[in-house]
Design a protein around this nucleic acid. Structure first.
Length: 737
DNA sequence: AGCACGCCGACT
DNA sequence: GTCGGCGTGCTC
């Protein structure tokens, strides 16, 4: 590092002539900063460098374009180090720029997402390898024989790897090395994953799958930008179809990225991949151990890793030759990041594929509305997969009209559902009860004075968590011990829990079936590790009744699960979100799909007070087409709010695509408004004050810091803004390209 | 985003 | 008398 630093002589004599380059630093500055390049240092656009920034050293990326330092030349500092690492390629730099522009985020913060592996920037150290020589030890013990046997393939072994393979301690190997039985050499570090073999174990596809596979393989063969949308119900074999596209891309020697929502829970997926390709894909998600993370990052940039399966952040890995992206469960809201840089990884993946000119495959049993519309308009190529299995293997879905079959007093489960659970358990099979609400009860009130427990920080109701003895705010994380006394009227022991959470449903189940093994699965009760173990235990039959939140809906298979009960199907329908029906439909499809994957007779029972609601009808009739068409019309209508006469509109939203959707709707609602612009929270206040028009400002901020920044900027701007301030729910884009 | 600087409450 | 809370401001 020291050799890169400018010497005193450099500074005295060369400084005036020194070249400067723009460098993106991991900071919310609107543009790159300028840095001096020391005389003998080589940098090019994309070089990953270390630079001084205020009191610390940070990493940055040399960026494109002419550098025009607009700062006192004496303040310019020099690049301290160039990392020995492949520079970011032009298409990656273009992608990062595009994302920054589109999401209204500082480019430095976007670039930072691509460099999320600090210690990986210099090459991994070489490791010492051992290879068998002709020499043999003077005394051949059984342990020594095993080692020689194991190492007999003429390849280099690591010391610990060989010890493990021969089932001996490493001191045996040290002994042999000392006698000259092994020669040592430095070799490149071992790959984090073995290379996948596209022809390892192809599965036979049924005619429907084969047809779909031909479409995606043709795209993979062509290798140019194209978006396929694979749409098929649970169990139709979508994964096998896109595996074929992956195989094709691997044969062409290019890298593949598989995006999955919440990969930490998808051990089953990795196994399926390994069974098909003979090796696991490299994983990329937030739970990764730092060492592994660095290795994966490094080997992805160098091209050693061929396939990455990852969460949304994997989209920002600097692949050396990415040739295909798969976005599985394309509709899943987990693809949206609403932190720092706001983006939807599914949409950004399409952009990355277009900029890199390679194909992309979107996959879902319940595609998002916007992807369906893009399929219909020909922007994407729809690939429909017919149902593979006989009807009998799909769960028999039915609604329970809660007005006709009300629960017992104080309970939340109708006798119809309780009955079905009883029969299931008697048969030695499993039942799953789904309720998308953590904790014991969503609201606590005082029976004497009517006081409701509210969050002191954000005004939502505090949720009782009885297992923990706490009441918690699910929005801001505020928590306190469950009180026994009403803070308002001082009455002791008269607090009432209102409404159900999973803990309360489990309590009700225990009352009905005291002998059954009931388990609660909720994200707040256990870490990812524990959860994985619990899911495995359940799959092995170590529980009779599972009560779970949303996480049970995500792709885990329970072979003995023959009954799925939805406790409150109406829950998500009344929260004012224009996507409520779509989301509920997707969630109910997914959770009822947890039953009936084994060929056994299985059923899904859905408790609802609105049995005629289009979502409920779509679920039981299986007529998804009609539902989607209706929802598309509804969504169009939601995008046309009654804004009356508007001269100008400024929109700010958490996801750029959502702001676009607003803007489109508003342009239609008010064609006279020529000046509809989309601005970030920092620019919007200024425009509000300087603008000469009447306007309406839409701000969506789940982040309080964002709103605070906005308000601060508004106050700093001085005069009182003209216009109205409205808070609007977020809406997904119909399209964005 | 991080980090320093700076100004007011409870404590070894 | 200090330690420490987080508000404000700056970084090529």
């Amino acid at each position: 590092m020291g050799t890169d630093s400018p010497t005193l002589l450099d500074q005295l004599f060369d400084a005036p002539a020194q070249r400067t380059v723009p460098v993106l630093v991991p900071m919310p500055a609107p543009k790159p900063y300028s840095y001096l390049v020391p005389a003998h240092m080589h940098v090019e656009p994309g070089s990953i460098v270390q630079v001084p920034l205020g009191p610390r050293q940070v990493m940055g990326v040399v960026w494109d374009g002419e550098d025009r330092p607009d700062v006192d030349p004496k303040k310019l500092k020099s690049i301290t180090h160039v990392f020995d690492c492949p520079p970011l390629k032009p298409d990656m730099r273009g992608f990062l720029d595009w994302v920054a522009g589109y999401t209204l985020s500082p480019p430095g913060l976007v670039a930072r997402m691509a460099l999320r592996a600090p210690a990986a920037l210099d090459p991994e150290p070489m490791v010492e390898g051992l290879r068998l020589t002709e020499t043999r030890p003077d005394r051949l013990t059984p342990a020594r024989a095993r080692v020689i046997e194991a190492a007999g393939n003429g390849l280099f072994w690591t010391r610990s790897g060989l010890a493990h393979a021969a089932n001996v301690s490493s001191s045996v190997i040290d002994g042999l090395t000392a006698q000259g039985v092994f020669e040592t050499a430095f070799m490149p570090p071992p790959p984090v994953v073995a290379p996948p073999d596209p022809d390892y174990r192809p599965v036979s596809l049924d005619p429907g799958q084969a047809r779909a596979a031909r479409v995606v393989c043709a795209a993979a063969q062509k290798g140019s930008f194209e978006v396929a949308l694979i749409d098929g119900v649970t169990g139709s074999g979508k994964t096998e179809v896109y595996f074929e596209a992956i195989a094709e891309t691997l044969r062409r020697g290019r890298q593949v990225l598989i995006l999955l929502p919440e990969i930490a829970l998808t051990a089953a997926f990795l196994q399926r991949f390994e069974a098909r390709f003979g090796a696991k894909p490299a994983e990329w998600h937030s739970e990764l151990a730092p060492r592994t993370r660095e290795k994966v990052w490094r080997q992805v940039t160098e091209g050693g890793v061929r396939v990455v399966a990852g969460a949304r952040s994997a989209l920002f890995l600097p692949f050396t030759d990415l040739g295909l992206i798969i976005v599985d469960e394309e509709h899943d809201p987990a693809y949206k990041q609403e932190d720092r840089v706001f983006y939807n990884a599914r949409d950004m993946a399409v952009v990355r594929a277009r900029l890199g000119d390679f194909p992309l495959v979107l996959v879902s049993a319940t595609p998002s509305l916007e992807s369906r519309v893009n399929g219909e308009t020909g922007r994407y190529s729809p690939v429909h997969l017919p149902t593979r299995f006989a009807e009998a293997a799909l769960p028999d879905l039915g609604l329970i009209d809660m007005r006709r079959h009300p629960p017992a007093r104080g309970g939340f489960l109708s006798p119809v559902l309780v009955n079905a659970i009883g029969k299931t358990v008697e048969r030695g099979e499993q039942a799953l009860l789904f309720l998308n609400r953590r904790g014991y009860a969503p609201l606590t009130l005082c029976r004497v004075c009517g006081h409701r427990f509210q969050c002191p920080q954000c005004s939502s109701w505090l949720v009782e968590h009885r297992f923990r003895g706490q009441i918690q705010c699910h929005h801001c994380g505020y928590a306190e011990r469950t009180p026994e006394v009403c803070p308002e009227c001082g009455t002791f022991d008269h607090l009432a829990a209102c409404g159900p959470g999973v803990e309360r449903i489990a309590e009700e189940i225990d009352g009905h079936f005291p002998g059954a093994r009931t388990i609660v699965l909720s994200s707040d009760l256990m870490g990812v590790k524990r959860l994985r173990l619990e899911l495995e235990a359940i799959a092995k039959g170590e529980a009779d009744i599972v009560v779970g939140t949303q996480l049970v809906a995500k792709g885990h298979n329970f072979p003995l699960m023959t009954l799925v009960g939805v406790v409150d199907a109406d829950l998500g329908l009344s929260n004012g979100d224009p996507r409520a029906a779509e989301r509920t439909f997707q969630l109910l499809s997914q959770v009822t799909g947890r039953a009936g994957r084994t060929g056994r007779k299985s059923q899904g029972l859905i408790q609802t007070y609105q049995p005629t609601h289009p979502v409920m009808q779509a679920i039981v009739s299986g007529d998804r087409e009609a539902f989607y068409q209706r929802e598309t019309v509804e969504r169009e209508r939601a995008l046309l709010p009654p804004f009356g006469r508007l001269a100008a509109v400024i929109v700010s939203a958490d996801t750029r695509g959502e702001a676009e959707a607003h803007a489109r709707g508003l342009r239609q609602a008010a064609p006279a408004a020529a000046d509809i612009r989309i601005l970030g929270p920092a620019e919007a206040p200024l425009a509000m004050i300087r603008g000469r028009h009447r306007f309406r400002l839409l701000v969506h901020g789940k982040r309080s810091s964002d709103m605070q920044a906005f308000m601060r900027a508004m106050i700093a701007a001085g005069p009182k803004p003209r216009g109205t301030l409205a808070v609007q729910v977020d809406i997904d884009p119909q399209s964005f390209l």
